[in-house]
Design a protein around this nucleic acid. Sequence first.
DNA 1: CGATGTGTTGAGTTCACTCAAACTTAGTGG
DNA 2: CCACTAAGTTTGAGTGAACTCAACACATCG
Lengths: 254, 254
Amino acid sequence: MSQPSKTNVIKLSEAAVSCRNCSMYGICTPPGADANTMALLEGAIKKRRVVSRGEHLFRAGDPFTSIYCVRSGSIKTYVNSDDGSEQVTGFHLPGELLGLAGICAEDMPGSGVALETSSVCEIPYERIDILNESLPGLKDELIRLLSQKVLHYQTLTMLLSRKSAEERLAALLLSLSTRFQRRGFSSTEFYLSMSRNDIGNYLGLAVETVSRMFTRFDADGLLTVQRKYVKLHDIERLKVMAGSPRIHLQMAQA
Amino acid sequence: MSQPSKTNVIKLSEAAVSCRNCSMYGICTPPGADANTMALLEGAIKKRRVVSRGEHLFRAGDPFTSIYCVRSGSIKTYVNSDDGSEQVTGFHLPGELLGLAGICAEDMPGSGVALETSSVCEIPYERIDILNESLPGLKDELIRLLSQKVLHYQTLTMLLSRKSAEERLAALLLSLSTRFQRRGFSSTEFYLSMSRNDIGNYLGLAVETVSRMFTRFDADGLLTVQRKYVKLHDIERLKVMAGSPRIHLQMAQA
DNA sequence: CGATGTGTTGAGTTCACTCAAACTTAGTGG
DNA sequence: CCACTAAGTTTGAGTGAACTCAACACATCG
């Protein structure tokens, strides 16, 4: 709301721009946050890290130390079952949190890998306690975000167990669209940073099925697709296909 | 650990028995909790409520006020999509929490209904804040439990998108078995309080498929089933069928 | 310019679904 | 106590959506 203060102008304004649309916004910039608070957060919470395409941010079995928030790029998280197969648990866009499932465990239960060159904030979990002193409401916000994740996965569960391939892909595209829009990107035109394989894995579909669905959507005039590039022509019809509005809403809470 | 104190002996000892194996154990009975603390919790956190079979504990759209913990019986939670169909999101046994997905919203996103006559603790969410003062660590515990839920649903996601009907049912039976055992019930012999319909809905299978799987498991000597009654004969083989041990572990965190 | 990874298309199969009917149990009231 | 009903469960038969296997197309890149 207020202008950044005298000191550290550049740094703070940078933070304001990049944090405005972040999941942690309520935490990083609580209503009435003064420059002091901002500086505290800038200095204490955040440790930026850049990971390039294919590089792991963390791996299953690593000791749990931090949670992460995407600044730019995109991160795929997955858990692997003992038989070697993996299950994609999410695609994380700028402003979204990941690594929360690790809180309850000693070690990270899943892995996070960059789908493209990405920048993330690493937030050492032990600092949450300390920061909560100076920023009461921090833990409450974390609780709220976790609750949102629970709701998100409950919705995903419905998508996977009740919906057809068509409905699942439509729902994913809408989810991405909404999330891009929220962060200030185009809601109708974007590049998919994940492969068809990842999409199929996430949605519980074979790669071939995903590909066929894209082809069909294109043929039906719903969208134009050229490999990674997607342009949505008829969001309304996509919504009808995906079914209940409630699902969009909740799937968009990533 | 210690004996209940002079005052309120009966009440406290009751609490000790029923809370020992509860999800909230770490909260209700923090290490070193004295009688004072116990009394505080007994009086402040808990409001018991009895719901009979088919009765709703809360409904989607109700204002969010409390989270709940099952004392006895079992509660089914579900979300309903706009088209009227419902998706079962969980079966909650004694000692397990429900209603956590509501924290992030104004209103309850889903409903909770008793599968049999059940007793639950209702915990007004606003009291968490107050209680956290006298019981630091309360919010941390809540965060841990929420994280566990996230992990649980990620695992359920894998079950739904990658596994066959056989694997899904095996995993559910093992989950129930583990959870019954943890609370002091038999791990090999129990009554299913939920209908085949509920099971099918939860696992993303048609009722008929669930029924056929039970019949097949019985024929294969894995278990004996007579409607609601189930006796597991070969847990080891069930585990093999359900696949990775990691899945059991995480599915058992309800 | 092959080589390799990723995506698309085609053909045939299969697992779980739907539809349909019989059966069992629990509850109701004559 | 015994129909009678309603709800839940089981079994059977046939169908279909998505899967697997296989070949081909198209980028990207050393």
